[in-house]
Design a protein around this nucleic acid. Structure first.
Ligand SMILES: [Zn+2]
Length: 271
DNA sequence: TGCACCCTGAGC
DNA sequence: GCTCAGGGTGCA
């Protein structure tokens, strides 16, 4: 699933190509993915030039010369693929953008959960407007985590996945960070000590930095903007390793459901 | 505040 | 042939 390191890797791989491109063709193929409707989207985007490419949380954002912006959210199985020699689109294609030189940007999404938003500067999509600070921004992110720790009593994993608290973590990096910090994912957040918050944030930074260095985790569907997989799946400590030995103590990695998500952790190393 | 729901392919 | 995976939204 694309989380912060994956979306950022997609952004980096598209950055050399998209800015400056003129969009000559817009083909929405999955109507329900578009906010607003696909007809408005096609009308507003056709003929525009891409002026910028950025990321906020798990959203990838294109700026257009009209002043409008397009945000993509890939959810679990979405891919954004740039090609200079387009071939016939895959079965589950949400959108095709065609450029003046014959290149294209394609959004593929077998599970069809991904969304495409068209918006203006003041009128952000609700999910984008509500995002907390980037998980990589230490001062703001840590302050928000601590504030949540004071007024909430949900499991710590629930808070890490809450994009209004900090933006960018998903199920994989959350499990990995909690393991590195030695904290049980179901611990109520109001029970964490100041020392544990510091440790947890350090672990979050570490797993995100590693994920970025490895160009993302290709556990299931993820590839970057050029179709290349990342390698961080080879470095995961607990996620997807149920029953396999804990890298620290050697006991089998445990699995349970926390915050409605499959959760991997070590019963012996995490309290 | 927490959970069902959306959806399909992979894996049993 | 069935179950499961998952992020954000909408609704209780
Ligand atoms: Zn262990």
């Amino acid at each position: 699933m694309p989380e912060l390191p994956e979306v950022e890797t997609i952004r980096k791989t598209l950055a050399p190509y998209l800015p400056g491109k003129e969009i000559t063709g817009v083909e929405p193929r999955l109507a329900k993915a578009f906010r607003p409707d696909p007809e408005t989207f096609a009308r507003e985007v056709t003929g525009r030039r891409i002026t910028g490419l950025s990321r906020r949380g798990k959203y990838l954002i294109l700026s257009l010369d009209s002043g409008k912006r397009v945000a993509f959210h890939l959810r679990m199985s979405g891919r954004l693929l740039y090609s200079e020699n387009p071939s016939p689109p895959p079965k589950h294609t949400t959108l095709i953008l065609r450029f003046k030189g014959g290149e294209e940007l394609l959004m593929e999404d077998p599970r069809k959960f991904g969304t495409v938003h068209l918006f203006t500067g003041k009128n952000l999509p609700p999910g984008l407007a509500a995002l907390g600070p980037e998980a990589t921004e230490k001062k703001e992110a840590l302050a928000n985590l601590r504030a949540a720790g004071e007024r909430r009593k949900a499991p710590v994993k629930t808070i890490l996945l809450d994009q209004t608290v900090l933006a960018g973590l998903g199920n994989i990096y959350t499990d990995e960070a909690l393991f590195l910090a030695g904290i049980d994912p179901s611990r109520p957040v109001n029970q964490l000590s100041p020392d544990e918050w510091e440790k947890l944030y350090t672990a979050i930074r570490r797993v995100l930095t590693e994920g970025l260095a490895h160009r993302g985790t290709s556990q299931r569907d993820y590839v970057d903007g050029k179709g290349e997989p990342g390698t961080h799946q080879e470095y995961l400590r607990v996620y997807g390793r149920r029953g396999k030995p804990c890298p620290v103590c050697g006991q089998p990695v445990s699995y349970k459901r926390v915050a409605g998500r499959g959760t991997h952790y070590c019963r012996f190393c995490q309290q």
